[in-house]
Every structure is written in C-alpha cells, then in structure tokens.
Amino acid sequence: MKVDIKELKPKKAVLKIEDTQLYFINSLRRIMLSELPKLAIDGVVIYDNTSALFDEIISHRLGLIPIPTDLSLLTFKDQCVCKGKGCPNCTVRYTLSKEGEGTVLSGDLQASEKSWKITEDKIPIVRLYGEQRLILEVEAVLGRGKDHAKWQSVQAPAYRMDISIEFDKSKIEDVKRIIKKLPEGIADIKNDKIVLKDETKLPALESIIDKEKIDFITVKHDPTKITFSFETDGSLTAKDVIVESAKILEQKYTEFVKQLKAL
C-alpha cells in the first residue's frame, strides 16, 4: 500500500491511496462515522431561560457544538473508574451566563479548565433582546457516532476510484463532438484517451453518455487506486481522525483473531 497526502489541513484531508481495495477504505470510512469517539454536550441544567427559544431547542443547539477533544485524557463515562457518576476523567463541565441585548455565542461557554476552551467560538446559540436572560450549566461526555450524530466528528467522508476513459478510435469525430457539448475546458483528448481536468466532473460526461446511449466511450474504474477525502467539525484534527480510526480498526481485527483462537 502506498499513501500519498494530497492535502492536510487541520479540518480537511485528501489522501491518495494506491495498491489497496475498496473494502478497506470503506471500513475505515465507516469507523470514522460510527466508532470514532468525540466530546459533545449531553447534559444541560437550565437555571434561567427567558429567551425566545424553548429550553429543548437551546439544549439541542448546545449538543451540536464541536468541543475540542483530547482522546488520550478521556474515557467513556460508563467505563470510567467513577462508575458513571461523572469525574474529571470522563466529563467536561461548562457554564454559561448572559443577560441583556446581544448574541449568545458558543465561545461564551466557560470551561472549568482552560485546556477545554471551545475553539469554534462564533456559533450563535440564541439572540437575546431587552432584559432576556440565559443561565445554564452543561456537561460534555464522550460518545460515538452510532449513538447520535452529535458525536460524529467527520463530515462527508468519501472515496473515488481512479478513472480512465477510452474510446473507439474510428469514431474520433463523434468523440470530439461530445467533448464540445461539455462545459468548456473540462475534457481533452490525449494519447487516445479522454482526460478530465477535474475528475469530480465525470458526471457531466456520464450524463451525455447515458442520454445519447453512446457505446464507443467506456469509463474504466481502477479499484486499487483510491482518492479518499474527509472533513472534520473541529473537535479532532484531520490527522488525529485518520490515526485514531486506523487504531480502532486494528483493535477490531486483533479482537477478532483472539476470538478465532478460542474456537
């Protein structure tokens, strides 16, 4: 397997993976969606809420805020030494108190410890008018995407196979006519193949092939060469996501092998 990093930003990554199989990338993708833990607000105590939104709506909005997560410092609440009571090993607490004209932002949540400060601090929770007031206390716990979407740290994980577009050389005039129908500059003929400038624009060509029932152009997919891309919401960095997901997948295989030995 060969991995080439095309793009690695704190919140986005594009990897080109060669000599692999689709099932492997797909299992990695599914681990990211459903098994990777992250922090999210799970319990809210509302002391005072005179704003225009209901308590439930505010709680729901709080739950969706991404909280920077350090997975090495935290354990799941039900597996913690405190037996689910809530301690610094499994819960992170925040308080919020605001009164009078203005927007309550996610950055107004005060962490009990500075290291848990919310980084996505510009998300509006509610807008207050006049003498309206919002005072609450929340606790954030680790969870997994399969339990609730608020615990899903990865957005739009997707993979794409490499493509090569071949055509019947005797019909080159027809091919040129079809390329002219596409948006300008997205396709070109090079060495008896159609080359797309941007491979995500393939559906434009495919729709014409479908519509006109063309049989002299064939799009070939190579399932061993895959471009894998995903974004995160800011609770984990893109690098952490890929490393932690690979670790979880490895644990699952190790566990499986262990079970097989018992047979």
Partner: peptide, 9 residues
C-alpha cells in the same frame, strides 16, 4: 452533511 455553518451566517 453536518458541517458547522452557524458561524458563517
């Protein structure tokens, strides 16, 4: 898709 968009509005 679940991307944070509240802060961009």
């Amino acid at each position: 898709c679940g991307k944070i968009i509240g802060d961009a509005f």
